[in-house]
């Protein structure tokens, strides 16, 4: 199975690449729309700042590629910023329009603590995820912007969250063919590998 990894200049693509490879799949790095061929699943890594990354996505027509594959048969996993770009509007280092697939905005995580860096216990709402991560739900987070509250009609897509400074931070969102996580499975040791296996259906 070919697993595409979107390269939009500022992602830790080789961490994701190596994890996919080590699980026995064929990772393929996709840097422009033409390289998107025979891809069975797509992963969008994310270590970067929203404004510039969205510019890169648009420049290389990768934004269109994602747009074309919303609500399709292609399973997509968005990680951190790779989740946030599916929202309506993002405010990191300048305002930018996201893919508008999730009705929510991406803003500063909190006025008090500017960053959430470290491991957190994720509260899962889905039975399936609860059963996979029965004894240990710790995942690695590293972000300063996060999805604000999801629109009422989109609340049903929320499958996991953490609490940070007394507010809920959406951490797992599933909508049709899209699965997005605020944490970094590629940096979450044993749990991260488990999560990746879950996405890849093994």
């Amino acid at each position: 199975m070919n697993v595409g990894i979107l390269n939009y200049d500022a992602g830790n693509i080789y961490s994701v690449y190596n994890l996919i490879y080590n699980l026995g799949f064929t990772p393929k790095i996709i840097s422009n729309k033409n390289e998107f061929k025979n891809i069975d699943k797509l992963i969008i890594p994310g270590v970067g700042s929203a404004f510039r990354c969205l510019q890169n996505l648009k420049k290389n027509k990768l934004f269109d590629l994602l747009s074309d594959n919303l609500n399709s048969e292609l399973p997509i996993l968005g990680i951190c910023l790779g989740l946030q770009i599916f929202c309506e509007r993002l405010y990191e280092n300048g305002e930018a329009n996201g893919l508008n697939f999730l009705k929510a905005n991406v803003q500063k995580i909190s006025q008090k603590n500017k960053f959430n860096i470290g491991w957190s216990k994720v509260e899962f709402k889905s039975d399936e995820l609860n059963s996979i991560f029965l004894n240990n739900k710790d995942f690695y987070f590293c972000h300063s912007f996060s999805i604000q509250e999801l629109d009422k009609n989109d609340q049903k897509f929320l499958e996991g969250y953490i609490k940070f400074d007394q507010r809920v931070i959406p951490s797992v969102i599933r909508k049709n063919n899209f699965l997005g996580v605020q944490f970094h499975p590629e940096k979450s040791q044993v749990n991260g590998v488990k999560f990746m296996k879950y996405f890849l259906n093994i």
Partner: peptide, 9 residues
């Protein structure tokens, strides 16, 4: 650097 990678990095 902050604008490219985000301050968290």
């Amino acid at each position: 650097f902050v604008e490219t990678f985000g301050g968290q990095a």
